[in-house]
Amino acid sequence: MLNKIGKAGAGHANSANEIELGDPFVYKHLGSMATIGRYKALVDLRQSKEGKGLALAGVLSFFIWRSAYITRVVSWRNRFYVFVNWITTLIFGRDISRL
């Protein structure tokens, strides 16, 4: 869209009045997830505070958050690296040493 506006008048004021901007933006809430440490997280997948849906806290929500996170990683290689990092952190803990 910005390329179209730039080509139409190089971004000068009112140069893009005739350009079709498309449908207006409509926000759709998909939910909120947050990890709070120590294998706990918050998951809120409701459409609104009064709406139906899933709202959890604790260990189960931590696994839901991790599942959602791993599905959003782009490549299988990076998914593998993230998963291995999670496993090594689970076994050995976080590395807190300084170099």
Rank of each mutant, 00 (worst) to 15 (best):
V74E: 07
L60I: 12
I36P: 00
A10K: 14
F83M: 12
A8S: 12
L90W: 10
K7P: 00
R94T: 09
K28P: 00
R79C: 11
R72I: 04
D44Y: 02
G58V: 05
L42H: 07
A57V: 13
E20V: 08
K28A: 03
Y39V: 11
K40W: 11
Q47Y: 04
S61V: 00
H12Q: 13
F62W: 04
T35Q: 09
S61F: 00
S32A: 12
A10G: 14
A41E: 01
H29D: 13
Y81K: 14
G53V: 01
G93W: 05
W76E: 09
P24R: 13
L60H: 14
D44F: 04
F83H: 04
I87S: 03
I87Q: 07
G58Y: 03
F92L: 10
V82F: 02
A10Q: 12
T89I: 09
V82C: 08
T88S: 15
F83W: 10
I19K: 02
V73E: 03
G6T: 07
L45T: 00
Y69Q: 05
F92E: 05
I19Q: 01
A55M: 15
K7S: 06
K52L: 10
I19W: 01
L21S: 14
K49Y: 12
K40Q: 15
K52W: 03
E18P: 01
S15R: 02
R46F: 00
S15N: 07
D23F: 08
N3R: 10
T71L: 12
S75A: 02
S75D: 08
S97Y: 07
V59R: 08
F25V: 10
N78L: 04
G6L: 15
K28H: 11
G51W: 04
Y81P: 00
T35M: 13
S75T: 15
V82H: 03
F62P: 00
I36T: 08
V26H: 15
L2I: 11
L42D: 05
D23G: 06
P24K: 15
R72G: 11
E50R: 13
N14P: 00
A10N: 13
A10L: 13
W86G: 01
Y69C: 02
Y27L: 11
E50N: 14
I91T: 06
I19L: 13
A34R: 12
W86Y: 02
I64D: 02
V82T: 07
R66I: 09
I87R: 07
L60S: 14
N17Q: 13
G22H: 06
S32I: 07
G53N: 00
N78S: 05
M33C: 10
A57F: 08
L21T: 15
G51V: 03
S32R: 11
F83N: 04
W65H: 03
